[in-house]
Simulated assay, not measured.
Amino acid sequence: MAGRHTQAAIVRAGRDLYVKGDRAFWANSLQGRPGTYSIIRELQGKRVRSQAGRAGSQGMCDKRSFLAALDSDTTERTGMTRGAMTTIGGKRALALEKKQPGGEKVTLYVATDGEPYVLKTVTGGGEEPGKALFSDYSTQVEAQEPAADEIVDPAVLEQG
Rank of each mutant, 00 (worst) to 15 (best):
1 M>C: 11
91 K>F: 03
120 K>Y: 02
115 E>K: 15
4 R>C: 05
9 A>H: 14
25 F>M: 06
23 R>K: 14
71 D>F: 06
144 Q>K: 14
149 D>G: 01
19 V>T: 08
65 S>M: 04
68 A>L: 12
132 A>Q: 14
119 L>I: 01
121 T>R: 07
146 P>R: 07
60 M>P: 00
1 M>A: 11
116 P>V: 00
34 P>W: 09
127 E>P: 04
150 E>L: 11
152 V>K: 00
47 R>D: 05
17 L>E: 07
52 A>D: 05
88 I>Q: 03
64 R>L: 10
61 C>T: 11
113 D>G: 06
145 E>S: 15
29 S>T: 09
36 T>K: 11
45 G>T: 07
38 S>N: 11
33 R>K: 05
57 S>P: 03
51 Q>C: 08
62 D>S: 15
101 P>K: 01
5 H>M: 08
20 K>D: 01
14 G>Y: 08
42 E>M: 13
160 G>H: 09
10 I>R: 15
75 T>W: 08
36 T>E: 12
96 L>C: 07
120 K>T: 03
83 G>F: 02
101 P>T: 01
41 R>V: 09
118 V>M: 00
124 G>S: 14
70 L>M: 06
88 I>R: 10
45 G>K: 14
147 A>Y: 04
41 R>Q: 12
79 G>F: 05
87 T>S: 04
78 T>Q: 12
100 Q>V: 06
140 Q>H: 12
24 A>Q: 12
39 I>T: 00
118 V>K: 03
3 G>Q: 08
88 I>F: 00
66 F>W: 09
77 R>S: 11
150 E>I: 02
83 G>M: 05
76 E>Y: 14
111 A>F: 01
15 R>M: 08
12 R>V: 11
28 N>M: 09
65 S>Y: 09
103 G>E: 04
40 I>H: 02
18 Y>H: 04
38 S>I: 10
76 E>H: 15
101 P>Q: 06
57 S>M: 08
80 M>Y: 00
108 L>D: 08
94 L>V: 06
80 M>F: 02
22 D>H: 14
146 P>V: 05
2 A>N: 12
125 G>C: 10
27 A>N: 13
100 Q>D: 05
105 K>N: 04
128 E>I: 13
18 Y>W: 03
32 G>T: 09
59 G>S: 07
20 K>R: 14
101 P>M: 02
54 R>F: 06
51 Q>I: 08
24 A>F: 05
67 L>T: 01
137 Y>T: 04
42 E>L: 12
155 A>V: 07
16 D>L: 11
116 P>F: 03
72 S>W: 05
65 S>T: 03
49 R>I: 12
114 G>C: 00
127 E>G: 14
104 E>H: 03
127 E>A: 10
147 A>W: 03
53 G>T: 12
105 K>D: 01
64 R>G: 03
50 S>G: 13
138 S>R: 15
94 L>E: 04
152 V>M: 02
72 S>P: 00
90 G>V: 07
69 A>I: 02
25 F>P: 07
